[in-house]
Write a protein that binds this DNA or RNA. Structure first.
Length: 183
DNA sequence: GCATCGATGGTG
DNA sequence: ACCATCGATGCA
């Protein structure tokens, strides 16, 4: 049983944390006592208020408030009427950066595919009630793990509306993983 | 293999 | 009206 990644890990810029999260283990202690573990293989960085793809670029609202808080907390939001998206808040307090967890490889206690942000939260049972949860305490934590041999950087998925930010290479994934959401 | 579409509801 | 998605459908 490893020690959860500390606050300092998250208190860096979102692009750095997005890369660094690849290979770590997402660990979720569920109410029924089952512990789910999954190796993170794909992430995206949302790098602050100036990033037009970042929700916080439209200012602080009830939904985005947690991104303005301290690093190492979960930002979980609901989209398309049916999916919850899991993010990790990064950077200095007051600087709204976050990393979207897009895909993972099931290691234990998980049923169903994790190759996409909506599938991942669905299979793990992650919903908005984890919004704001402290990732240094649990029930949701990340633990250290071996990084990928090769990481590919690419434009983020589904942010074509973000003007000049649409092409920024802020999506990161394990080049050798078969569990990435798409090539 | 690809393009397109509908589901479904919170948000500003 | 829009949306950091997904599964189904149609066609090649």
């Amino acid at each position: 049983m490893a020690i959860p990644l500390p606050r300092d890990f998250y208190a860096r810029d979102a692009a750095t944390v997005a890369r660094a999260l690849l290979g770590t283990s997402l660990v979720l202690r569920r109410p029924d006592g089952i512990v789910a573990r999954a190796r993170v293989v794909e992430t995206e960085g949302y790098v602050g208020a100036q990033d037009l793809a970042c929700h916080a670029s439209r200012g602080r609202t009830a939904r985005t408030a947690v991104m303005f808080g301290p690093a190492g907390h979960a930002y979980v939001y609901f989209i398309y009427g049916m999916y919850d998206m899991l993010n990790v808040v990064t950077g200095p307090t007051g600087d709204p950066q976050a990393v979207l967890i897009r895909a993972a490889e099931a290691l234990a206690g998980v049923a169903g595919p994790l190759n996409g942000p909506g599938r991942l939260t669905r299979a793990l049972g992650i919903t908005r009630d984890l919004n704001g949860a402290d990732l240094c305490v649990g029930p949701l934590t990340f633990e250290p793990g071996p990084p990928p041999a090769e990481v590919i950087a690419a434009p983020r998925v589904g942010v074509g509306y973000a003007g000049p930010w649409a092409a920024a290479p802020l999506r990161f994934y394990d080049a050798d993983s078969r569990h990435v959401s798409r090539r």
